[in-house]
Design a protein around this nucleic acid. Structure first.
Length: 390
RNA sequence: GGGUAGAUACCGAAGUGGCCAAACGGGGUGGACUGUAAAUCCACUGGCUUACGCCUUCGAAGGUUCGAAUCCUUCUCUGCCCA
């Protein structure tokens, strides 16, 4: 095991805030594996790159010999974390949550070492609690404390509802820390408050308080809001290689620097931005799929977009048997078959009118065209989607 | 419990009996330009339709009217004030 000082130095890298470093160092000096907690709410079945920032840090703790504890918030997910939320999250059923949790774990183990990870469901203790115990727990936190939170405060200012069950969230997350005797809790910067509540509760239970360890939040593809499933600006770790690569290629240059820093832990290399972006895409695909997949995605991107040669590209194949022969119907069917996207005929018509649709490299501009489709023909639908006729 | 204000398309927000498929802004999509970057310009943005037009939509359900997002009734949800 590395010396405590060396560990601290490694761990600090990329962190946004540690409360406090001195405390962390003291814990590292205990010479035993620390319980490092990372909580996740399986509100959606997929992990996206934003969450991997914290996961990677947890992996680093693991590699330094500490005990990673992944808390699956099966119970809290039914409430929904209000952090950074302008609206109440929809509540999920327990069945939804459990099925999400399953695929969530699989994906988390692309980053974590599954053999050395303890996974816990917080329903284990919350389902057993009596109302009396719940009330007792509530008695330890004041409304004023809860209302200090920026997200609640701003919702109140804007005249939007804050429900009581949302106020319970930090208490529950804090109680998780007590139950697993966390030494360190990892989270995004938006988790500061929740993690601090954990410290309060631990102190009340005469436990040593956990160190607050915050990682920066990764912006989503739009470069403005944090990456999140519900905003649709995310890259999922289980997305197909070319999809993943394509999404990363579409980010802005400023954002690319952030991604380098937070996902690869490096400075942006001093090369042409497009090449840098291709490297980024390659390495991310490589990490979550394989080197071969990354090479494939890169090659595909190059033929498809850099050389604008759709013909050689690896495109999804669509069957047109039983589909009306007019171009609009063909487009709608293609979107649905190849990408599971339900376009309206109006959307499809618009794509034709505005000159996006190409068959065998020729623009199809006539709405009522009955195109002659041969097997192997390439049909370009829009900027990002093209198919091959089967 | 009492009072009061509100609920409009992806979001914000106008509209307060016909000119409303509903202004405007943001977002999104397509085109030009490019590096699937940024910036800029143009177009589109409920469904069906080549089009005329038809259909569904303004929290929900009923009603008044030739005609309702707009008026009435009941209901659901939310803010604010009072208790």
């Amino acid at each position: 095991m590395e010396s405590p000082e060396k560990q601290l130095e490694l761990l600090k890298r990329g962190a946004s805030q540690i409360n406090s470093e001195a405390e962390l160092l003291a814990k590292l000096r205990l010479g035993r594996p620390l319980n490092v907690k990372l909580g996740v709410d399986p509100t959606a079945p997929d992990i996206h790159l934003g969450f991997t920032v914290a996961l990677q840090k947890l992996r680093q703790f693991q590699d330094l010999g500490h005990q990673a504890i992944l808390i699956i918030g099966d119970f809290t997910a039914m409430i929904g974390d209000p952090s950074g939320r302008s609206k109440t999250r929809p509540q999920l059923t327990h069945d939804q949550v459990m099925s999400n949790a399953k695929s969530f774990q699989q994906q988390a183990f692309k980053i974590l070492d599954s053999a050395r990870t303890r996974t816990v469901f917080n329903g284990e203790w919350f389902e057993m609690m009596t109302f009396e115990q719940v009330m007792k727990l509530n008695g330890r936190v004041t409304l004023q404390q809860m209302l200090q939170r920026e997200d609640f405060k701003s919702r109140i200012e804007r005249g939007e509802p804050v429900h009581l069950h949302e106020i319970q969230y930090p208490i529950m997350q804090g109680w998780d820390s007590v139950m697993i005797k966390a030494d360190v809790e990892l989270g995004g910067t938006d988790q500061l408050f929740n993690i601090l509540v954990g410290r309060d509760l631990q102190r009340e239970e005469n436990q040593p308080e956990q160190v607050v360890f915050l990682m920066p939040l990764l912006e989503g593809l739009d470069g403005v809001q944090k990456m999140s499933k519900s905003l649709g600006n995310y890259v999922g770790v289980s997305e197909p290689p070319s999809e993943m690569f394509g999404k990363l290629m579409s980010i802005s240059d400023e954002l690319m620097a952030r991604y380098y820093l937070l996902l690869l832990g490096e400075e942006l290399p001093d090369i042409h931005p497009m090449d840098a972006k291709k490297q980024l895409g390659f390495r991310i695909v490589e990490r979550y799929h394989s080197t071969a997949a990354a090479e494939g995605a890169l090659a595909d991107f190059n033929t498809r977009f850099s050389k604008r040669d759709l013909n050689q590209a690896d495109l999804p194949i669509v069957q047109m048997a039983g589909v009306e022969p007019d171009i609009v119907s063909v487009i709608v069917a293609s979107f649905f078959q190849a990408f599971q996207v339900q376009k309206s005929r109006g959307d499809a018509r618009r794509l034709v009118e505005q000159g996006s649709v190409q068959l065998r490299g020729e623009k199809v501009a006539e709405l009522k065209a009955i195109p002659a489709l041969n097997a192997g023909d390439v049909l370009r639908l829009d900027k990002k989607h093209a198919v091959r006729i089967g």
